[in-house]
Every structure is written in C-alpha cells, then in structure tokens.
C-alpha cells in the first residue's frame, strides 16, 4: 500500500516513520502558540472587553463557550474527513489521526455544554433548555462517545480502524439531519420560548477575544492530537526497525 504511493511527494508525510518525528517537532510549537493565544485571548476578554450592557459580566463565558462549540463540530468533520481518506486511499495513518482527534473533540463538546449550562442559568434562568442548538450539541457528544467506544471495543486494529471510519461517516451524514429535525421539533414545541440570538451589536473587542480564543483552541487541538498520535503510531508499527530504534532511544532514557 505504502510503496505504491511513494511517487507522490505529499504522501511522504503519510509514511509513519516520517510523520512520527515531524509530529514530535511540531507539537511543542503548537502548544506554545496555544498558551500565547490563550493569554492574549484572556487579556482581551477580561481586561479590554467592556461589560455587556444587557448581560453584565456573565457573558465572559463566551470566550470559551463559542470556541469550544465550534471546535467540537469542526473536529467531528475532520474526523469524518480522515475516515473517508483512510477508506478510499487505504492509508493507516488517517485512521489513527481520526481516533486521536476524537477524545479532544468530545472534551470540547462537553465544555461547550457545561459552559452553556452555566451561562444559561443566569441569563435564561435555567441550566438547560431543549433548544435546537443545545440538543444537537448533546447528540454530537453521544456520537463522539459511540465512535470512541466502538474503536476501543474492537481488538483487531484493522477492523477497529475501518469500523470507526464507517460510523464517523454515518454520523457526519446524520449531523445535519439531526440538527434540522431537532430545530423542527423545537419550533413546534416551544414556540416563543427563550431566544438564543446574541445581542445584535457585539463590541469588536469581544469578537476579537472570541476569535483569538478560537485560534488558541485550534493550536491546542493540533498539539494534543499530535502528542496522542505518536504512541499510537509506535504501537501500530512496533514490528518495524525504525520503531525499534525510537524505543531504544526514547524508552531507554527514562
């Protein structure tokens, strides 16, 4: 499989022995970027951004809530993308990538729900409302759990890879359907309940803080995924000579 792809330059990075050290070199940079961006974002969010006219200080949850919600959806799409690549091109690294992304996506999904609940209590008076967005986010968390549980439960890695890829794709096809159906259900059942639309005029500093925090979440996701993928690669490639050398070098150190 791999040798047939050596002709393309881009696939050079898909070779595990090239990707493993590359991931190790890149991860600390992304982690540093994540720390720096988080500090800037928090500074913008807590020092520069003004108090919201209608919500007071509690709106400052937005600086993690919205980036986490974006990230949780985006990561699922990336997982589905890598799954499709893996099934079509038969590249093992793509499957490993999608499995390394899943826990981080699930964490962001939970963070979005948790911060949403804490934001909702003072603003709408309830920790949870069965709103379309909240409900779809909850179902997305279940999709993450399903993917993680399935890939962990199957012992044969080849089968786990492919089965996980199928369920990730099935989930990705269903996410828009779920969102639409929940929205439909919500408008029928709740009519004019709470309106979740943000205040129309959002101060630019608020927006800037949110965007910077979103980039921080990106950088963090990249760093932690690369760190998580490295031992997974070693595990899969343990029969090869290069992993033997890595093990002697890195494992002997401790």
């Amino acid at each position: 499989m791999n040798s047939s792809q050596r002709g393309f330059r881009i696939f050079r990075f898909a070779a595990p022995q090239v990707f493993y050290p590359l991931a190790g070199r890149l991860a600390p940079w992304f982690a540093a970027a994540a720390v720096a961006l988080t500090l800037v974002g928090l500074w913008l969010g807590f020092v520069v951004a003004p108090t919201d006219a209608t919500q007071g200080e509690v709106y400052r949850v937005i600086f993690i809530h919205v980036p986490a919600a974006w990230m949780s959806m985006f990561i699922y799409l990336v997982m589905a993308f890598w799954s499709a690549v893996g099934l079509v091109m038969n590249t093992r690294l793509s499957f490993v990538m999608s499995q390394a992304l899943a826990p981080t996506g699930a964490i962001f999904c939970f963070v979005a729900l948790w911060t949403g609940a804490l934001w909702g209590k003072p603003t709408w008076g309830a920790y949870w409302v069965w709103d379309a967005r909240l409900t779809s986010q909850l179902l997305l968390l279940f999709l993450y759990f399903g993917f993680i549980a399935l890939t962990r439960a199957i012992e044969d890695p080849r089968r786990a890879d492919r089965a996980g890829a199928i369920i990730a794709l099935v989930g990705a096809v269903n996410v828009p359907i779920i969102y639409f159906s929940v929205k439909w259900w919500n408008t029928l059942h709740q009519g004019a309940s709470v309106s979740l639309t943000k205040a129309p005029s959002m101060a630019t500093t608020m927006l800037a803080g949110m965007l910077v925090m979103a980039f921080a979440a990106w950088a963090y996701t990249l760093a932690v995924t690369l760190w998580r993928v490295r031992p997974m690669i070693l595990e899969r490639e343990r029969h090869t000579e290069w992993v033997g050398e890595v093990l002697e070098r890195e494992g002997g150190r401790k």
Binding site: T51, G56, E57, V58, R60, V61, I64, H65, W114, T115, L118, W119, K121, P122
Partner: peptide
C-alpha cells in the same frame, strides 16, 4: 465578576 463569579469561574 459582577455577581456572576460562580458561573464565569465555574466555566
């Protein structure tokens, strides 16, 4: 946090 400490810092 203007009275919203539990919610903001809890998040």
């Amino acid at each position: 946090m203007g009275g919203a400490a539990v919610f903001v810092w809890g998040s």
